[in-house]
Design a protein around this nucleic acid. Sequence first.
DNA 1: TGAAGGCTGTTACCGTTGGTAACAGTTGTC
DNA 2: GACAACTGTTACCAACGGTAACAGCCTTCA
Lengths: 199, 199
Amino acid sequence: MTLLQDRDARRESLLAAADLVVQREGASASMAAIAAEAGITKPILYRHFGDKSGLYAALAGRHTDRLLDALVDSLTGGGAPRVRVLRTIDTYLAVIGTEPQVYRFLVQSEEAAPVHGPVRGFVRRMQELLAAGITHELRLASDDVRAPVWAAGIVGLVQAAGERWLEERDTDRGVLSELLTDLIWGAYGQLADAQAIRR
Amino acid sequence: MTLLQDRDARRESLLAAADLVVQREGASASMAAIAAEAGITKPILYRHFGDKSGLYAALAGRHTDRLLDALVDSLTGGGAPRVRVLRTIDTYLAVIGTEPQVYRFLVQSEEAAPVHGPVRGFVRRMQELLAAGITHELRLASDDVRAPVWAAGIVGLVQAAGERWLEERDTDRGVLSELLTDLIWGAYGQLADAQAIRR
DNA sequence: TGAAGGCTGTTACCGTTGGTAACAGTTGTC
DNA sequence: GACAACTGTTACCAACGGTAACAGCCTTCA
């Protein structure tokens, strides 16, 4: 029992060290450097994470899980649909705006392929969540392709607008959240009116 | 003169060989393998492209330039704005649907960071093009942030929906193009009505 | 008590890869 | 015919991911 606790605690401390090195040296940080930061040697890292992609996946998963939790809370909290969407977008922007290095590690990281796995998983889960919400909210048929297409689109829209905002920072976060929500709501009406498209 | 021609022709043949190897072995192809495919040795590659990221950037740039040309043609061709947007989206989907390996090399390539440069350049040019078009079409003020935000969003929306479509292939291309155009048009109206947001 | 097994940690090594220095052949020029 | 410039090669280096083999330590059980 305490063994497992020790193992988990150790794993956490290793991830913390890896986080440090990645923030400092970028995603191309070497396993030896991470091991040195943690005060141990390479084989221990490999015993814990299998290989480099395992470590990076764990590192990324940690962040995506946290982000996903925050977004799910925002989306499933109280309020009218539009309020919930606005709140979710604002939460997303708040997180990436507060920790841009983490964001860059996750989506733009030069030379960090293993990260793609967790990130894709995160994006997919977000899409599924939205698609289910849309299907329910608009009372669409369960095989109407428009829900997943729209869900994928909205995720991409917010992600791209957020990335641009990170680079430019030419708007208040709240204003941007409102603008994006407005845009989405306009298209939302479009979706509600038209005919079903079965897959 | 003929020297430059030779050099360019050679460069092209090297890129073609690199293309082959990358399609076959993925983006983690080694420089030695590419050199072997081209029938020469490593230092020649390095003399032409500087380093690995130079080669990959050239390779990616080739594809993004081609794609950008096709999209610009579609977008600036004749027809009403909605027709031009529909045509552009359809062109995009046609290209990525026809050459999914190229698409994956460009945006999902495991372990091919240098590619991000050209791809980001491509995305940025596309965003600027759209932002200018929107500003002009809706007669927005040149410092209205909504145009670039919206442009970034629409690019992200189409990209994300396209990526999902590549994985699922659960709709006809034409139907998807129409659906995306409808969605965008709905938001477009939203944008036209609201107040300006100056940066 | 003491021997055996498993866990934690290390050193030292291997194979591959990106990248380069140094050298050889070839061709055009004065 | 010497010389410069270019094209090409071999042979090497450094760094990195990954692993085998060994050493100490703590628990467990006869």
